[in-house]
């Protein structure tokens, strides 16, 4: 997959949750543009075009980052802090999707500038519905600040 064509960066260390998410996104035809990072360090490397991702460029960020909180190496809140704290990446929409019910986490997340915060439903169907709505909302209704040369810039033919 072309590194500049990634729509969603999914950051989650739970194999089950990753598969569920990809499955739900596939149903909306979004699955082929998802990149999965298994820990906070890989997520940061991806977003900051470092480590194994030096071929990426800040001009082609993902349209959305789906971020879990509990991650190995670097946790979700740290990732959020760095992404929202750097002018090169702070405009990337970040959605925290976590099983944490901590009110404190919500408060800190919004303080750091998370775009939205969702709790992963326990129910399989609810989870799927949530991912579908997320995809639709953030990739279709929302206008991301990216400049990929895609269909947005080409007028519809008549």
């Amino acid at each position: 997959m072309n590194p500049s064509e990634v729509d969603i960066l999914l950051v989650d260390d739970s194999q089950d949750d990753v598969e569920l998410t990809l499955h739900a996104l596939r149903a909306e035809n979004l699955a082929n543009r998802v990149f999965v990072a298994r820990d906070g360090e890989e997520a940061l490397d991806f977003l900051f075009c470092a480590g194994p991702h030096t071929e990426r460029s800040f001009d082609h960020p993902p349209k959305m980052v789906l971020l879990d909180l509990k991650l190995p190496k670097v946790d979700g809140m740290q990732v959020l802090k760095q992404v929202k704290g750097d002018p090169r990446t702070r405009t990337i929409p970040v959605v925290l999707m976590t099983s944490s019910k901590e009110e404190r986490d919500r408060a800190i997340g919004y303080d750091l500038g998370v775009n939205s915060y969702l709790q992963k439903p326990v129910d399989f169907d609810e989870f799927r519905k949530m991912v579908k709505l997320l995809g639709l909302y953030w990739l279709v209704i929302n206008q991301p600040p990216v400049t990929n040369g895609n269909s947005h810039s080409v007028a519809q033919a008549k």
């Binding site: 040369g149 810039s153 080409v154 007028a155 033919a157 008549k158």
Partner: peptide
Amino acid sequence: DRTQLAQVFQNLVGNAIK
């Protein structure tokens, strides 16, 4: 111009389909 060229191809192919 890449965007403009894409528009030409898109219009012509789109018309062919339509």
